[in-house]
Structures are given as structure tokens and as C-alpha cells.
Design a protein around this nucleic acid. Structure first.
Lengths: 183, 183
DNA sequence: ACTATTGTACCGATCGTTCGGTACGCCATA
DNA sequence: TATGGCGTACCGAACGATCGGTACAATAGT
């Protein structure tokens, strides 16, 4: 994907994650990107759905690069977890920016976008669980904690939005850290 | 509010919480309620916005009755927390049903509905904190745990949706219970 | 008879989408 | 070095469909 197009996708992603799939019109996208509606169809022949799915796939690749990779890179479980938390905090603007996956998971009801978003969330929990298993934590317990950590991240984002403050998110991240590093 | 109207509001609430504000059209509401558009405008002269705000106010009243009241009614902190958890588990169908407040908080971007939904989420955390303070837990710590519990509930709902299973939600609730009852 | 409630028909606006067409750069062939 | 064709990128205008909302007459319940 060219840099040019990646920038466009980035702009569209910011719309979708803040307003959900149905909350964003092609007019909005046109205004935000500076491209005419017909130009958007040049880049995304599949229309709005292709714009959204492209955005999701970019998010998937970002997760791979900025979340999963740090989760396997550190020299100790603590440093791996801290690496992920640091990345995640950056991605979500310290709690100020909504999660694209959660946004599409909720707003598309049983469409293909929601299915893919759900898949990525499950993958996320799975990768965390794998990191724990590599440290000798039993399989089911690792899975339990992985899911719990993702729940804390997502719940932290929602409460941070409700409180209009990054503090709830940061508290949730601290709790997730404790859960993941408990022995 | 008459029983008749309360039923209508309930049907509309189920639409909004599953698809968000923008994902529901008046046609959808008309089909789901069996009422023509004119009938809907008879009951809700303010249109879609009034339908949504009525739905939110009904949710507020339900929270008061089924969540806040149990939170003050038990004879021990443990029984109060368990009362709330039991009610909450029922309200969300064991994790299968999305949260109306979270749905509107996210899909309305900075509209009045999102503001009200956020207010109710903050109130929820506050009520939990109050229950903890009544047991001697220090103010800031009580507030921290209240917010954390709400985050676990909301995050549990999202992960449960991603996994298409009530299990993540139940795990999140169990964790919330532990957090709230810790000494 | 009166009021509450509803169905039918319709409104302008906006939705996602498609169309015809233009500008520009690359590359082959003459 | 011209020239003509071709692919990429973009645009304004318009499409049919649906959006939220309204006017009004008919019906139902008292």
C-alpha cells in the first residue's frame, strides 16, 4: 500500500473509530480526505464496505507490528507486558481515542466487519495468553487472563470516554498489568 | 408511563443497544413495534431523538431499580455486591446482550445522548464507590474500584461479543467481585 | 360527539453509488 | 524527438433508494 493511500486509510480509520460504521457518511469521508466521492470509488471500488475492511486490515497489521511483536520481544514477561501496555497506551492516545475494532464490532451487528473485528480481538487475547504460557502459566489460566486483559483495555476505553479523562483507562491498564504478572 | 408505552420503549431500546443510534432507522422501529410512523410521532413528537432519550431515561430508571437499589439493600457488602452482579448479569443476558449506554455513548459522538449515557455510567461507578465507602474503604480507593468494576462489566460485554460466548463476561464479573471485595 | 390513535400519502434532504469526462505522466513506436 | 495510446487519479453531476419528518383524513374508544 502506497504512503499516499495509507494516509487516506488513516483518516478514514479515525472517522470510523469515533463514529462507528453507520455514523460515517461518504460525504464525511470525502470532506475529511479532501477527495471527491467519485475519487474514493477509484481507490475503493467496493465502496464504503471496502473502505471499512481496508481500515480493519490496516489495524490488523498495526496490531501485529505494535502489539503482538512487543509481546514476544522482551527478555522477561514483565518487559513484554510493559511493552504491550506502552504500545497500547500510545495507540489509544492514553485513553482518549476509541478502539476501531470495538467500534465496528458493535456498530455493524452481524456483518463481515464485525466478524473480522471480533476475530482480531480474539487473536489479541490469544497472543497475550501465549506470552503467559511461555512463562509456564497453565493453558486455561493463561487464556482466562488474556481475555481479562483485553476486557480491561476495552472497558478502560469506555469508562475513559464516559469520564472524559484518561485516568480510568490508565487505572485499567495498571490492573491488567497486575493480573498478567500475578503468579 | 403506561404499560403499553413502556413495552414500545423496550422494543426500541433493544434496537438501539444492538445497532447503535445511527444503525437504527425509523423504518426499523416501525417494523419492530408494528406501529406506523405517524403513531411513533404521536408517542414521540420529538422524533428519533426523543425515542432514544426516552429509552435512555427508561434505562436510567431500570438502573435505579435493579442495580443501585440492590447495592444499598443487602446486610453486608458481600451481599450488596452479589446483588448488583446478579442483577447486572440478568440485564445483559449473561453477557449476550450489549449495553445500551455504551452503545449510545459511542455512536452519538458528542450529542446529548452520549452526554447523558456518560453521566449514567459515571453515576454507576459513583454508586458502587459509595457502597464501598460505607464499609470504610477510603474515598479515592473506593472511587478507583467503582470505575474499575464498571470497566470490567463493559469490557466483559465487548469480549463476550467478540467470543460469541457469555464466558468472558462471567469471568469479568468474577474479577469485578474480587476487586470490590478485596480488603 | 369528542379525543386519542392510526394509515396513507407525501415532503425535502441525504444516503451510497455510478456516470461521463478531464488532466497528467509514462512508454512505445515512428 | 515527436505522437499517439494507455493507466492513474481525480472531478462535478446525477442516479435510485432511503432517510427523518409532516399533513390530513379515517378510525377506534370513550
Amino acid at each position: 500500500m502506497s504512503n499516499q493511500k495509507a494516509e487516506i486509510v488513516d483518516v478514514i480509520a479515525n472517522l470510523f473509530r469515533r463514529r462507528g460504521y453507520d455514523g460515517v457518511s461518504l460525504g464525511d469521508i470525502s470532506a475529511a480526505t479532501g477527495l471527491g466521492k467519485s475519487s474514493l470509488y477509484h481507490h475503493f471500488p467496493g465502496g464504503k464496505e471496502e473502505m471499512a475492511s481496508t481500515v480493519v486490515e490496516q489495524a490488523a497489521s498495526n496490531m501485529q507490528a505494535f502489539v503482538f511483536t512487543p509481546l514476544m520481544a522482551g527478555d522477561s514477561l514483565e518487559s513484554r507486558i510493559d511493552g504491550m501496555i506502552s504500545s497500547v497506551t500510545g495507540i489509544y492516545g492514553g485513553g482518549d481515542d476509541p478502539c476501531l475494532l470495538a467500534s465496528l464490532l458493535s456498530s455493524d451487528e452481524n456483518g463481515p466487519l464485525a466478524e473480522r473485528a471480533g476475530e482480531l480481538i480474539r487473536l489479541w487475547a490469544d497472543r497475550i495468553a501465549n506470552a503467559l504460557r511461555a512463562e509456564g502459566i497453565e493453558r486455561k489460566e493463561a487464556r482466562r487472563r488474556g481475555i481479562l486483559a483485553v476486557a480491561l483495555i476495552q472497558g478502560g476505553l469506555i469508562t475513559s470516554k464516559a469520564f472524559d479523562s484518561g485516568e480510568p483507562f490508565k487505572e485499567a491498564m495498571a490492573t491488567a498489568r497486575t493480573v498478567l504478572l500475578a503468579r
